[in-house]
Design a binder for these strands. Sequence first.
DNA 1: TATTGTTATACTCTATAACTATA
DNA 2: TATAGTTATAGAGTATAACAATA
Lengths: 187, 187
Amino acid sequence: MNDASLKVSLDPDIMQRMNDSAAGRSSPSPAAGGGPDGRAFAAGVASRPSLLLARIGTALEAAGDDWLAPSGLNGRDYAVLAILTTDAPGTQQELARLLGKAPGIAVIAVDRLQEAGLVERRRDPADRRRSRVVVTPAGRRALRKADLLADDGLSQLLPGLTAQERDVLYGLLSRGASHLAGETSDG
Amino acid sequence: MNDASLKVSLDPDIMQRMNDSAAGRSSPSPAAGGGPDGRAFAAGVASRPSLLLARIGTALEAAGDDWLAPSGLNGRDYAVLAILTTDAPGTQQELARLLGKAPGIAVIAVDRLQEAGLVERRRDPADRRRSRVVVTPAGRRALRKADLLADDGLSQLLPGLTAQERDVLYGLLSRGASHLAGETSDG
DNA sequence: TATTGTTATACTCTATAACTATA
DNA sequence: TATAGTTATAGAGTATAACAATA
């Protein structure tokens, strides 16, 4: 986690192009990080596990783009690069499925990353309908940088926890939701 | 947590009216509970704490309405009733702030609950601009029922964890995000 | 003039449904 | 006929900005 190489240094072109749209989205929402004057969390929410978990997830998504800003990525970019790198889906439709979104969303996401030079589409010679999306070296650098930024952000979102406790938390989440990782639910 | 009284028995009228809109929203999204054939979670997501937490939060929100259906409430209703009961905000604007949404959203949410007879608006005699929202007995019954349903749902969302482990998880989340509960962030 | 509740409007995100090309 | 990618459209959800009532 604490590698010595934190300087990933993306191409300035890439960062500029992607920040064009990323910056436009970081509008100050009333819920995001902290309200103008009152408390951000209601006790009625904090005292109920399901509401608390939902609220933390929302807060994370709201803050995520800000965390990742130095990498030039937004949350969607990050998730897509992570899936492409780790799961290597053979088609964009599988990417969409792993992303949990409609196929059209994957098209837009890949378009965006491709324009930034972080991924490339490669037609499958065996079946020319399929286009395999491969991550470029610049994409891998961006993902590494985003991983570090995301970890930093998460530690800031949960400042009440030590690194050890965050590991426990992550372990519980990972094991608790592991049933969703490999099973074919009801197909 | 394990009270003997699980039968809250809402008025049939209330349940029918609120289910009119609640049922219409439970459309099968491709991400929600489990995809048609593939895995729901990508390894690239599951192996990254921030993406995993965001995804679990999304899955919870997607499934929440289904969990709460027997109570006649949706997730928004549940959160509002919880805040009204626990935090007792003096104005709708404070309710909106605690809810993390714009004031107009609170108006709509209170309208909905009021039509179902779960809350009532009471003009403040001292300052007639303010309307205090009070929870009716039916609203309190619905909230109690929803609390039980939400706990059940959460245990189903994380089947890999024992009840004890879920308590640990909740404790970590609660303590980790406690900084958001009482501090005035930057007002 | 400032604040509360309310309403109307515009914007963002997304699923759905076409459509094209390949098979 | 069926599947992958793509595009267009419609709908839900929300913030923003007005507005009316009250202070």
